[in-house]
Design a protein around this nucleic acid. Structure first.
Lengths: 140, 140
DNA sequence: TATCAAATAAGAATAATTCTAAATTAGATA
DNA sequence: TATCTAATTTAGAATTATTCTTATTTGATA
């Protein structure tokens, strides 16, 4: 946590107690929480925290490149403090999201007719599957 | 249109005038319309059509595998009558969506640690870029 | 310690989508 | 062709994630 404080002090980002709680919750978190997950957790220590604060903080962190917004779940956004390039796989039964650390960038050349029409910026791969727990439940 | 009618008559899908109008609008349409785009268009001929009808019809067509739901735009769903496997690229300025016809499936092997945890179902690649018109506007 | 721009809280607003319930209708059948 | 019924339509309310508003509070600098 001391590292976190030192890091943000310099960066035009006021360290309020609410923000520190959010940063602490996200630090090393691989569960891909939603804004609501974060809100619910922070509320334990700060019962009057508002959604606006959670969303504002996530927005600010996103703009600073400190977290990634994960859009694999079309119902709600998830957040990931791991900003290294990676992909995700989601369980279509329980919506659990896991990280996929593999670089596919060499394989994703666009066809020429697209390259003629678009200046490309990037891409995004999402995988779908059924996780072990859900396979068990379904008796697969 | 005669083909369309013949096709659906057999398939437990009542052909109401509203549904025919939606099918006609979607047939060969490569603009990736949203539910609202479809609603607005159908309204010209059927001023009392409701959103529920549009959404119900899209849902039914999706379940029959007659259209694809396109999720590249996180703000709203788009629909594509082309059900052949393909990908999309979206202009990050104007949100125009184009089709990418290229098969990348051989390149997208998942790492072993994921294969151990998930029975895989499929994947999805989205591309981001800036289209020609928007490049001009920005003076790129 | 005073200052003030930035952040917070509470709740209203927004927008896409889904739901509800009553009225209508496509298409099968007599 | 007329009747019947389950499926469909409609209008509008409800839902849900997210954004916005405004008055109040506060972190960090001078």
């Amino acid at each position: 946590m001391k590292k976190i404080i030192a890091k943000y002090r310099k960066r035009d980002f006021k360290l309020t107690p609410q923000r520190l709680a959010i940063l602490k919750y996200l630090d090393g978190n691989t569960s891909h929480p939603t804004a609501d997950d974060i809100f619910t957790n922070i509320k334990k220590a700060y019962p009057t925290v508002s959604f606006a604060t959670v969303y504002n903080t996530l927005q600010a962190l996103k703009e600073k490149g400190e977290i990634l917004e994960v859009t694999i779940d079309y119902e709600k956004r998830h957040y990931d403090p791991n900003t290294a390039p990676h992909h995700h796989i989601i369980c279509t039964e329980c919506n659990k999201i896991s990280d996929v650390f593999k670089d596919y960038s060499d394989s994703l050349m666009l066809p020429n007719e697209i390259l003629k029409e678009f200046k490309t910026i990037g891409n995004h791969i999402d995988f779908y599957g059924i996780c072990k727990e859900c396979q068990k439940e379904r008796g697969d």
